[in-house]
Design a protein around this nucleic acid. Structure first.
Lengths: 158, 158
DNA sequence: CAACACAGTTTAATAATGCAACCATCGGAG
DNA sequence: CTCCGATGGTTGCATTATTAAACTGTGTTG
């Protein structure tokens, strides 16, 4: 890619999120981190990406407050990369991606894992979007409203 | 980049989803499409991307069954790009991205739009993940289980 | 103290963007 | 019928991201 158009100052929250974690590797790094991976070499082995890229990605994630470095709790020397609350907040996005694959992939049998709830070991339900008074909402039931305060915009999302 | 590692045959559903819609533009194109945009020039104007890139992205999205081309319902000649069910299924992912920005962005006041429910015009609640018996689940309440049938794997997600 | 693992950095090659200019088709005005 | 602008692209070239692989500098093990 080139000059990778930054969406950092876009007023659309989707664009902002993509700017932060919208590349292939960042999301997968966070996925691994949520699974408990914290060491450089572990990320590298599991994801199979080039080490320089991993370096850059980890640094970017740390800069954005998604990961933080800690002085290696286990063993000694070296540091480890831990998720911040902001990083753990990515979980629903990963679930959404997972469920989309599960629902629409043309070869779902190749999908190796199922997300289950720990207590019962049964698959989770689909993510649900509710209104404030509790109605289940689909895309068609929603709309975008400009924020009350601040400059208005024609930028949208759905 | 180089040889852009494809995750198409990865057994992790997150990776598969990212392989399909994990680049900056595809997600935004789908966002616009969900908002009703269907014409090439409309996408181009609203997103401000280069036309060649738009061409490639649209074709890829059509190939993947996320968009389909129709012979221009309105006016005449030219075609339009419409979402398939698979494309509309991306909605929760966009909502998850949006809510992540809303919750963790350091300058939330720059975010221009709010997702509301059409009926009441009030902001929606956060996406919720439930177990089959209805308990609200957080990341910590979940685990990954290998699929019953098929080759097992150490590939994970959280 | 030699070998090895960890956590990177550097380098060179290559593939993916982006920009701009070009081309083809359609519909409408004259 | 012809010219013109808008639509929907395609082509080329410059720029940048990503990669693999080699190299560096620590710490740790034997």
């Amino acid at each position: 890619m080139v000059k990778r158009t930054s969406f950092e100052h876009d007023d659309c929250p989707v664009a902002r999120a993509l700017d932060a974690i919208g590349d292939w590797w960042s999301m997968l790094i966070i996925r691994e981190a949520l699974f408990g991976i914290s060491r450089f070499s572990e990320f590298q082995k599991r994801l199979g990406l080039a080490k320089n890229i991993l370096t850059v990605r980890l640094r970017a994630l740390v800069d954005q407050g998604i990961l933080k470095t800690a002085p290696a709790s286990d063993g000694s020397a070296y540091q480890e990369y831990l998720l911040t609350p902001k990083g753990r907040g990515v979980f629903p996005i990963l679930v959404a991606l997972r469920q989309w694959s599960e629902e629409f992939d043309e070869r779902p049998q190749e999908i190796a894992t199922i997300l289950v709830d720990k207590e019962k070991g049964k698959p989770v339900r689909k993510l649900e979007l509710h209104s404030q008074d509790g109605r289940l909402l689909s895309a068609a039931d929603t709309a975008l409203k400009p924020r009350a305060t601040g400059k208005q915009s024609r930028r949208v999302m759905a």
